[in-house]
Design a protein around this nucleic acid. Structure first.
Length: 733
DNA sequence: AGCACGCCGACT
DNA sequence: GTCGGCGTGCTC
């Protein structure tokens, strides 16, 4: 019998929407999920992932190149994850190679063996611990290294040792030779605590929710709608506990900012199991180590942000998505997937239950509840029987604000301080003032690369663009008319902080925004100061609202709630409501009632009515009716083709071509809009435009997109602009 | 994305 | 006479 020629299909790291065929290595066909080194182009070798094998190729055999090397004995990506990634590449119409790469930790994207992916560290040995430090007095470098390692149970990497001494290697050599220090791989799984916290008692709603989730052995989506402070996390923990007891693993996804040490500690102190934490703040080695422990089944719980949804978990038993409505689940560049939606698909494919938790669920999820697709679990009560905070609207049309703070708000802050409680103020705008303005000729300092105004940062005396990062000095004279009367218009957090300091000279004020928390760990230390009672007033942007509890905050003020009230984006209302509910949740605890004051120029807006009643379901039902009438998601499916070009008309011109190519594709049940400039047409020197495609049904939309993209890829005009397709876009700009 | 090939301007 | 500008095309 003649042997059948075999072909290996490989997803290569290139923006190509297909796999490449290679001849197998002499060792035989590598299995799907295995990394291979393959030649690509002229003299270049890349690492790709095997997606399958075949008996024939559409490329003539003579032109096929052979796999250069096989990097993994066992598939690095197991079949379950490979299937999920293939689905995701198809659904988001994104190049398969880039999708595969995004699923791998950075350390494993190259040809490093999986066994050596962690951080290599120097760690103290038992012998080293017993050394009498006085005996090292004559070798200060060795002494410093040894005492540093004594404090670091996990050991130190070369990068970290450099900070102790540039010449650390010399001293380390001697310490290793003496047997006091050894080189090993850093263990990324924190030690299991000796004493575990006992689980608190559940209220009836929590117990019902836990019971419902645990009753489901197969795939089922649960929407856990729990008001702030109602104990959603405890429901997760109980469900996880039961899953762990059966020897299975749990995947927990949280929004980017919410993965705080506090949350991690809460998980660690409850379970006597290894927990892998995966987020962007880790070193590449730590990420790879956590990922590999999950894949090996060593980590029983994976707690991570968006990209953790692709972590291999051989014994997956449950998925939890916390704050499922949060926008940070959607990746905003490159492979634009939704971590939440992929999680639901993963649960379905793996046949496990998934819990989506939120105080303000997305309209998409609530709609699935209405349709009977998701099970609805409600936690209506705050733990400890605390009342929800009283919510008042301040009609700014009738109140004379002083530096954007109305009199009732100032008064409430004063009373709050007198009670020795803390106040928290939100303003979604950092910097001192959003505009630098000439009162004589009307000139407004513009960004030279964006269609936007520059924001004044007074402390650093700079004008900055919040869209492209450009910055420059603050002109003293108007460049248009020479006037010397330039002034700041509007308010940012920096200005409000100053105003508060003048109004309440005794108060200790902490400002929290991207400018004050740029340094690593500074956000955490600011929060720690607040919790320790070393601050009276907190001023900040949205980042103040997520994942943190401040028991002594009893007043929350929203300084400008109007942004987004009349926005062009159809999701703006939903997001505003979610934000206000989230910040309101910061006010008050069991024994101290909270108060929320919202400043607005549109107090009659319907959104505030539902907000005052604290009725999210009512708001959501109304909003869903509006969406249904307008034909917006979740009653339709969207795809947005975006383009940007350095030349003014380039993006629109390309989209014009895309629009005409669309005529050649199956267009039944589709609405293909005309290309339009993006709401902020110029950004960072690039001209941007977009084209929206909409359909009532998913299938025709995706059939269309498939053909449309293959035509677009062939078009030479497509090489002159940067373009990307966003399936289920979160923002229409 | 990389990388080479390919024709037109200012330099040792 | 060459170095190099980025337009165009291809990668199994």
């Amino acid at each position: 019998m003649s042997e059948t020629p075999r072909i290996v299909q490989v997803a290569v790291p290139a923006p190509l929407r297909r796999t490449f065929d290679y001849l197998p290595p002499s060792s035989g066909d590598p299995r799907p999920g295995v990394r291979v080194r393959v030649p690509l182009g002229r003299g270049r070798a890349v690492v790709g992932v095997v997606t399958g094998t075949a008996t024939a190729s559409s490329v003539p055999t003579a032109r096929l190149k052979a796999v250069l090397g096989v990097l993994d004995e066992e598939p690095l990506l197991p079949p379950e994850v490979m299937d999920l990634l293939t689905w995701a590449a198809d659904y988001y119409h994104h190049p398969i190679g880039e999708v595969m790469q995004s699923a791998l930790p950075v350390r494993l994207r190259g040809d490093r063996p999986a066994s050596a992916a962690g951080d290599s560290v120097w760690a103290i040995t038992a012998a080293g611990r017993a050394v009498n430090e006085a005996s090292l007095n004559r070798t200060p470098l060795r002494l410093r290294l040894l005492s540093a390692l004594k404090k670091e149970e996990q050991g130190l990497t070369a990068d970290e040792l450099v900070r102790i001494s540039a010449r650390w290697q010399a001293g380390m050599k001697a310490l290793v030779a003496a047997g006091w220090v050894a080189r090993r791989e850093r263990d990324c799984l924190a030690p299991v605590p000796r004493t575990l916290l006992p689980p608190p008692a559940l209220n009836a709603a929590q117990a019902d929710a836990v019971r419902a989730v645990l009753a489901s052995r197969a795939f089922r989506v649960f929407l856990l709608h729990g008001v702030t402070g109602s104990g959603k996390t405890e429901v997760y923990l109980r469900a996880i506990e039961a899953v762990l007891a059966t020897g299975r693993q749990t995947l927990v996804l949280v929004p980017e900012i919410a993965l705080t040490p506090q949350l991690v500690d809460r998980f660690r102190s409850r379970f006597g199991v290894a927990i892998a934490v995966l987020h962007s703040g880790l070193s590449d080695g730590e990420r790879a180590c956590g990922w590999l422990s999950a894949r090996a089944g060593k980590a029983a719980i994976v707690l991570g942000t968006r990209s953790a949804v692709f972590t291999p978990l051989p014994r997956l038993g449950l998925i939890v998505v916390d704050e499922e409505h949060d926008g940070s689940y959607k990746q905003q560049d490159g492979f634009r997937y939704s971590g939440r939606d992929v999680a639901v698909m993963r649960a379905r494919r793996s046949g496990v239950p998934i819990v989506l938790g939120s105080a303000t669920p997305s309209l998409e999820s609530l709609y699935q509840v209405q349709r009977g697709r998701y099970a609805y679990l409600s936690l209506p009560d705050r733990a400890g029987a605390a009342n929800p905070p009283a919510l008042d609207l301040l009609d700014m049309r009738r109140l004379a604000p002083d530096e954007s703070l109305s009199r009732p708000l100032r008064q409430a802050i004063g009373e709050c301080l007198a009670r020795r409680e803390q106040a928290m103020l939100f303003l979604n705008r950092r910097g001192f003032a959003p505009v630098w303005f000439c009162p004589d000729c009307g000139w407004l300092a513009p960004c030279s690369r964006c269609d936007a105004r520059l924001t004044l940062h007074r402390a650093s005396a700079r004008l900055r663009c919040h869209h492209c990062g450009a910055e420059g000095p603050v002109p003293k004279h108007c460049p248009a008319c020479g006037s010397e009367r330039l002034r700041a218009l509007g308010e940012g957090t920096e200005r409000v902080e100053g105003a508060l300091q003048r109004m309440f000279p005794e108060a200790r004020i902490v400002r929290i925004d991207r400018d004050t928390t740029r340094r690593k760990g500074s956000l955490e230390s600011a929060f720690a100061r607040v919790r320790a009672g070393e601050a009276d007033i907190l001023v900040g942007t949205q980042m103040l609202a997520k994942g943190h509890d401040f028991p002594n905050v009893t007043l929350v003020g929203v300084i400008n709630a109007d942004q987004g009230l009349y926005s062009v984006d159809f999701r703006a209302g939903e997001r505003l409501f979610q934000q206000i509910v989230q910040v309101s949740g910061r006010a008050g605890r069991a024994e101290k009632p909270g108060r929320v004051l919202i400043q607005t120029y549109h107090p009659d807006h319907g959104l505030f009515g539902a907000l005052r009643l604290g009725d999210y379901r009512q708001f959501a039902d109304d909003a869903l009716l509006e969406r249904r009438e307008a034909g917006y998601p979740p009653f339709s499916f969207l795809a947005l083709l975006r383009a940007e070009s350095s030349s003014p008309g380039g993006a629109l011109k390309f989209l014009g071509l895309a629009r005409s190519l669309a005529e050649r594709c199956p267009r039944a049940e589709l609405e293909i809009m005309d290309p339009v400039p993006s709401p902020m047409e110029r950004r960072a020197g690039r001209h941007r435009a977009q084209l929206l495609v909409q359909s009532r049904r998913r299938a025709p939309l995706h059939a269309f997109l498939r053909e449309w993209l293959s035509l677009l890829e062939e078009a030479r005009e497509a090489r002159r602009v940067r373009w990307s397709l966003d399936v289920d876009p979160a923002d229409l700009y």
